[in-house]
């Protein structure tokens, strides 16, 4: 097992630079999730660690060893692809054994490793089947099994759940979490789904346009986002933003300037009376989800926001509702998007 050190990593495709000097430390045994909107460079970063993309500048080290010029198979990493990328012409067993065969592992050792991985993933019954006779979830397990048998120092997952349906996704997510619990290997996981990121990660890396926006534990990112982008990306529904005009001067948090933005998460808005309100909005729509309700509102200044409520409001559409929030739950962002409160 090993950690990872990434220093000033740069990726260019011809003239176009897509990765702008990324620095990142990953501890041994950590579960790290790269998250960000599509095109942010999270997959590119993963593929550079894997060795599938050339490194244009900077270094990647796995353990103490710089791997810039090392072949993918010799980096001690194993990858699970979004499309599973199983070999369609080989049985499940051969799919899992293939990498070990290439490394000239003795046959009995291959057999032992494949069977033990199959045991862990409960695919022993399918070992002689071909991938096309498996369901999506089973294929995904085979893909994970193929990674496990190689006993890598670092597991790389490239959006492994995005081809599965919703219920299977939750189940497989749990299995991946259990797998990490059991193997205690370093795992790097790419997703655009912030729920996967929050539930799986020890550490989340939020990327945008080839730069790291913030690195931290899920709860850190949730409670103290470093900027508006992270604040908006982590948490569902998204954090609400209010301009100065939305907030009466007396209700503004300390140090709030006129050009600042106030951020409050939907779940932290609390109903109150007009006098003590920090923000107010005209009720536009209520989404009833049983466990809670989401009220969609719009301030007199035109900022749209959402309030999460245990009981749906009884007011008619178009009526004003008043909300407050405790100071610890309020985030202030300056005009350049950076948090003043993190």
């Amino acid at each position: 097992m090993a950690g990872l050190t990434i220093r000033n990593l740069v990726k260019r495709y011809g003239e176009v630079q897509v990765m702008h000097g990324v620095d990142l430390d990953i501890e041994d045994g950590e579960f790290v999730v790269f998250v960000g909107p599509s095109g942010c460079g999270k997959s590119t970063l993963l593929r550079m660690i894997a060795g599938l993309e050339d490194i244009s500048g900077g270094t990647v080290a796995i353990g103490d060893r710089e791997v810039n010029e090392v072949a993918p198979s010799k980096r001690g990493v194993a990858m699970v692809f979004q499309t599973y990328a199983l070999y369609p012409h080989m049985t499940v067993y051969k799919n899992m054994a293939f990498g070990l065969q290439q490394a000239k592992t003795p046959q009995d050792e291959i057999d032992r490793r494949v069977r033990s991985a199959a045991e862990v993933l409960q695919i022993t019954d399918y070992l002689e089947r071909s991938p096309r006779n498996l369901s999506g979830g089973q294929r995904q397990r085979v893909a994970i099994g193929r990674a496990i048998v190689r006993d890598p120092e670092v597991f790389l997952f490239d959006e492994p759940l995005s081809n599965l349906d919703a219920s299977l996704r939750v189940q497989t997510r749990l299995e991946i979490a259990r797998l990490h619990e059991r193997l205690k290997s370093t795992m790097i996981y790419v997703t655009h789904d912030q729920v996967e990121a929050m539930t799986l990660a020890d550490k989340i890396v939020v990327l945008r346009d080839g730069r790291i926006e913030q690195v931290g534990s899920p709860i850190e990112l949730y409670e103290r986002p470093a900027n508006k982008f992270v604040a908006q990306f982590i948490g569902s529904p998204k954090m609400n933003f209010f301009i100065a005009a939305d907030v009466p001067p007396a209700s503004r948090p300390d140090g709030f300037a006129d050009s600042d933005t106030l951020g409050i998460r939907p779940e932290h808005l609390v109903r109150c009376d007009e006098a003590s309100a920090r923000v107010a909005g005209k009720l536009e729509l209520v989404e009833q989800l049983g466990e809670y309700a989401l009220a969609h509102l719009i301030t007199p200044e035109g900022s749209e926001f959402i309030a999460k409520m245990e009981t749906p409001p009884t007011e008619a559409h178009g009526e004003m509702l008043y909300f407050t929030a405790v100071p610890e739950r309020m985030h202030v962002f300056s005009a350049d998007g950076l948090s003043k409160t993190a």
Partner: peptide, 18 residues
């Protein structure tokens, strides 16, 4: 042939000939 399959084989340490 999907590119990922070749990438997977590269991760598995396959030589170009293999």
């Amino acid at each position: 042939i999907p590119k990922e399959i070749l990438e997977a084989s590269r991760m598995d340490g396959t030589s170009t000939f293999n």
